[in-house]
Amino acid sequence: MAGYVTNLLLLALLVFILVLVIRTRRLFPVVVLAGAYSLVSAAMFVNLDAVDVAFTEAAVGAGISTVLFLAAMAYLPGIEKTPPEAKGIGHILPALIICIIAGLLLVAAAIELPPVGDPTAPPHVHVAPRYLEESGSFLHIPNVVTTVLASYRGFDTFGEVVVVFTAGLGVLVLLAGFTRTARIAKSGKTGIDGGEGDDA
């Protein structure tokens, strides 16, 4: 019961943070709020028995993501120019309609799902019991999540490493010579390459 109440409180906190993110115009608070969102969801994961996910989310989602955002913010303007609300209802109405329709469709589907924690729900009766019962005597690793991640589904994890490598490669390619370009753009404003634009 205490777990259920904690769950509700954390969900309420998440909704509160979301509303703040939508309403805040300065980007630094928005980024910090996104970090807080990750941290609160990590607390939720602990409450829902997913301890491995919780510390990954706290370290990677709330830590590394926020650091990446802050590092990028050093080069970017710190405030949103005109919030879409300021441009009149016509600017946010289509987005609102799309979100409400999609949300209602999802609610219609979610109502049919078995309740949270139901032991007879399909995900709990298929392959999970086998992992829980056999992995201990088979591989002698007490943490079942680690067993599945590194052993039963090792290729999945290998694919994940490839994805991260590709993303790192993409970032390197995109940012190669970035500081140089930024410097040229800055010096362009002071008129050094002004001649280049004249023949246009």
Partner: peptide, 20 residues
């Protein structure tokens, strides 16, 4: 444990997409 494994992978991939 299975959803936990899936989401562990997704969190790391999520950071990769954020960086990109």
């Amino acid at each position: 444990p299975l959803p936990h494994v899936l989401i562990l992978t997704a969190i790391v991939v999520g950071v990769a997409t954020t960086a990109l």
